[in-house]
């Protein structure tokens, strides 16, 4: 029988299997690596970069980097936390994240990961981009101000729902989420409230209508416990998911 392969995550020994990423092995071992675009149900994407770790001295995204035997991974040093906080601050200033006016607040993974990294300010100059809200669908609204381009809805719609309703259009700072319907409107797409794509958004971009404040602010998923303990918002049931 071949010897069990392991790597070091901070000071802890983590076993892994062939093909595992650092994230796969860490999740299985119950170790938290902050992330937004990663969801173990989907192919890793590596776009948010929040899972940055230092592996044998190189900065890599834990969700895409294959684990290697005897690798030494730094997940918790101040230097790594500083990098993650900077990435989160950039995500906040690139969009329009008005937490006091967002019905996802308290059950938002962007907020929760920012709390985890002790982010107290946006630090950078705000872009205040002009983006729209599409409320044309009877059951689902999409607020592009809050989209962080994680592509979880793109992956869920393509790989699980088999509908291909979402895409990313444009490149670099011009990249944006678009709806694949004749009019570009959500109401003219085949999206339904039970689609997987509606239940994977880590932020308040895709929201089921008519239930925004069913669960009051202060009693939501991340209001009392950190994301490192309660995990991804998508992994919780719908009531938790939408506050």
């Amino acid at each position: 029988m071949p010897e069990q392969q392991t790597f070091k995550l901070d000071s802890k020994t983590i076993p892994f299997r062939d093909g595992d990423t650092i994230m796969d092995a860490a999740l299985r071992a119950g170790e938290y690596i902050p992330h937004l675009c990663h969801n173990p149900e989907f192919t890793p994407h590596g776009s948010c970069r929040v899972c940055v770790v230092s592996a044998n001295g190189r900065h890599v995204s834990a969700c895409t980097q294959q684990a290697m035997n005897d690798m030494e991974v730094d997940n918790r040093s101040d230097a790594i936390m500083d990098k993650r906080r900077n990435l989160l601050q950039m995500l906040f200033v690139e969009g329009n994240h008005v937490c006091p006016g967002c019905e996802k607040s308290g059950a938002c993974q962007l907020q929760a990961v920012a709390y985890y990294t002790n982010m107290l300010s946006p630090h950078y100059t705000h872009f205040f981009p002009k983006r729209s809200v599409d409320a044309s669908h009877a059951d689902i609204a999409i607020d592009f101000n809050r989209c962080i381009l994680c592509e979880l809805c793109v992956r869920a719609s393509r790989d699980v729902d088999r509908k291909n309703i979402f895409s990313i259009s444009g490149r670099g700072i011009k990249a944006r989420l678009v709806i694949n319907s004749d009019t570009g409107k959500l109401g003219d797409s085949d999206l339904t409230a039970t689609d997987k794509a509606v239940h994977v958004c880590p932020v308040g971009a895709i929201l089921p209508k008519h239930r925004g404040y069913d669960k009051p602010i202060g009693e939501r998923l991340y209001d009392r416990q950190p994301v490192s303990q309660v995990g991804d918002v998508a992994a919780h049931d719908e009531d938790d998911n939408h506050g």
Partner: peptide, 18 residues
């Protein structure tokens, strides 16, 4: 010291920037 959402990131009044 920046106290509160509006001092920290513009807050609700900054929604007029749209």
């Amino acid at each position: 010291i920046a106290l509160g959402a509006c001092a920290v990131n513009g807050g609700i009044p900054a929604m007029r920037n749209q």
